[in-house]
């Protein structure tokens, strides 16, 4: 078991009323799963993903990741945990505009204190694997959306995470580019055994996954 959410609640107080963003979420994710989270706008998909990614906190419930109880951890430990095991892929890619493709890929490694030679090898490997060696000295703005997201996925993968969290990874892409990214996810999941949780609006994309979770008003249905 990779992670487990038990009775997770998250709310905000607005005008004296408690508005629930997540309501009694119970979820268990095994290693090697490919899960799609679906639901209408405002149903809590992204919030759930952020909670799983430890970028956001929750108000009630338990969260176990591997052997750690996330809800009891301090900020510092939490960030060490996600730093080591989780990679993020965003709808709007969030590549750093001032860095070249090569440097964007290298950045997570810098934060994990890899040595220069190791970094070079790992970046070269990733460029090779994603077939973007020719693009390594370009800036994000010089790439198409699909290519940017390719770099985004490569960056998420470079430090060998156990879990990839993707928030509408194809939301800004056309259908052909979408297709390619989803194929890539499928391959990563099947061949490399990476666990993936994606948020999506599209039935078609959801079908790539092995399990679908539907959310409505912060509740799993």
């Amino acid at each position: 078991m990779l992670l487990q959410l038990k009775n997770i609640f998250k709310w905000v107080n607005s005008g004296g009323q408690r508005i629930f963003l997540l309501k009694d979420i119970n979820l268990q994710v095994e290693e090697g799963e490919f899960i799609s989270v679906m639901g209408p706008s405002g149903s809590g998909k992204s919030t759930l993903l952020n909670v799983i990614g430890m970028l956001d906190t929750f108000d009630e419930g338990e969260y176990h990741f591997l052997d750690e109880s996330v809800h009891t951890l301090k900020e510092k430990h939490r960030s060490n945990l996600y730093k080591e095991y989780i990679g993020f892929v965003f709808q709007s890619y969030h590549l750093l505009d001032d860095l070249k493709v090569y440097e964007n890929l290298e950045m997570p490694l810098l934060y994990k204190k890899f040595k220069g030679s190791e970094r070079r090898a790992m970046v070269a490997d990733m460029l090779d694997r994603f077939n973007i060696v020719g693009k390594k000295d370009l800036f994000p703005a010089q790439l198409s959306g699909g290519q940017q997201q390719l770099v985004g996925v490569a960056r998420a993968l470079i430090a060998n995470p156990k879990l990839i969290l993707a928030d509408e990874p194809t939301g800004n892409l056309n259908s052909q580019q979408s297709e390619e990214i989803m194929q890539l996810f499928k391959r990563l999941n099947e061949e490399d055994g990476v666990t993936i949780i994606q948020v999506t609006h599209s039935e078609k994309n959801a079908a790539y996954g092995s399990r679908v979770i539907n959310l409505l008003d912060g509740r799993m249905v």
Binding site: G53, L55, S79, Y82, K83, F88, H94, L95, L96, M107, P108, Y111, K112, R155, A159
Partner: peptide
């Protein structure tokens, strides 16, 4: 934001 999600302190 990006740097933090990528593990920056």
């Amino acid at each position: 934001g990006v740097r933090k999600t990528l593990g920056s302190d």
